[in-house]
């Protein structure tokens, strides 16, 4: 048997080709499907559950307008609050899809498939670019779909408790689009951690640390050191929540400052990842 074929293979490597390659591999892996399903189901369940919980709380308390004077409760009477309730699962989706981001790159190194990947595309930054595009599109679509399903499921629950849940309301639009931005940011931080640390366990641990542990640490120190509380507003979980659910998580930051913060959390880790990826040897 011969390896020769009639027409010589041309085989020019392109960004589109690498992207296609990534898509083939990603969807051939079971972990991808599991994480996506988990993200959607968890997000919808938390949204519906939170809507029900808030609804029954309001019902038990009677007329919401009387709660104005009550500490922390006034916000519940805001017509946008029901919409913001849909964002309750945001941090979980940031974490789950952040893990997906971590695995997308750390998996290359933990399984040794980085060798195949970078032999097929020796231009390493092209691979990072392809994975970045894939992460943005995939997690973006998942979050939009999750939010839309959460809306459909929660709408009858909200109406049952006379809460307003309007698709066109600015509150819901914030949850939908800023929530999606927050999730994309988390997934890209995950991707960058995957390429920086080259370890799935390490990447996931640091990711969870950034979203769950860092806020606690900063808030503890924040009560002693003044500038620390300013830092806390720029943490990725705070930025995401204050953008998507500004009534529940108010911030002193201007919109442009928040968006700049998000951009920083996306650009800086990925840039560091890109520099190290180009420099370090592939094992």
């Amino acid at each position: 048997m011969t390896t020769q074929i009639q027409t010589p293979l041309r085989g020019k490597v392109t960004l589109l080709g690498v992207l296609r390659s990534e898509v083939i591999r990603m969807f051939a892996l079971k972990s991808t499907g599991i994480l996506i399903a988990l993200a959607v189901v968890l997000y919808v369940a938390i949204s519906a559950g939170a809507t029900w919980a808030v609804g029954s709380l309001l019902e038990n308390m009677g007329d919401p307008s009387q709660m104005q004077g009550m500490e922390g409760m006034g916000v519940m009477s805001d017509p946008g609050f029901a919409s913001e309730t849909l964002g309750s699962g945001l941090v979980f989706n940031q974490l789950i899809l952040g893990v997906l981001g971590v695995l997308l790159f750390s998996g290359e190194f933990t399984t040794g498939s980085a060798v195949s990947t970078f032999l097929a595309s020796p231009q390493r930054l092209r691979v990072l670019t392809a994975k970045t595009i894939l992460t943005v599109v995939l997690t973006g679509v998942i979050q939009v779909i999750s939010t839309l399903i959460a809306f459909i499921v929660s709408k009858p629950i909200a109406e049952n408790y006379n809460m307003t849940l309007e698709f066109v309301s600015s509150s819901f639009q914030s949850v939908l689009w800023y929530g999606t931005l927050a999730v994309i940011m988390a997934a890209l931080i995950g991707l960058a951690l995957g390429v920086l640390l080259r370890s799935s366990a390490g990447g996931i641990t640091v990711l969870a640390g950034v979203f769950f542990v860092l806020p606690i640490i900063i808030s503890i120190f924040g009560s002693y050191v003044d500038w620390m509380s300013n830092v806390s507003a720029f943490l990725p979980d705070q930025l995401g929540m204050s953008l998507a659910t500004p009534l529940s998580v108010p911030t002193d930051l201007e919109l442009w400052q928040q968006l700049l913060g998000v951009a920083g959390w996306i650009v800086l880790p990925l840039t560091a990842g890109g520099i190290l990826l180009a420099k370090r040897d592939i094992k």
Partner: peptide, 11 residues
């Protein structure tokens, strides 16, 4: 899947 993904990079 592995070979298809490698083949895809170069079309």
């Amino acid at each position: 899947a592995h070979l298809r993904s490698i083949a895809a990079t170069a079309g």
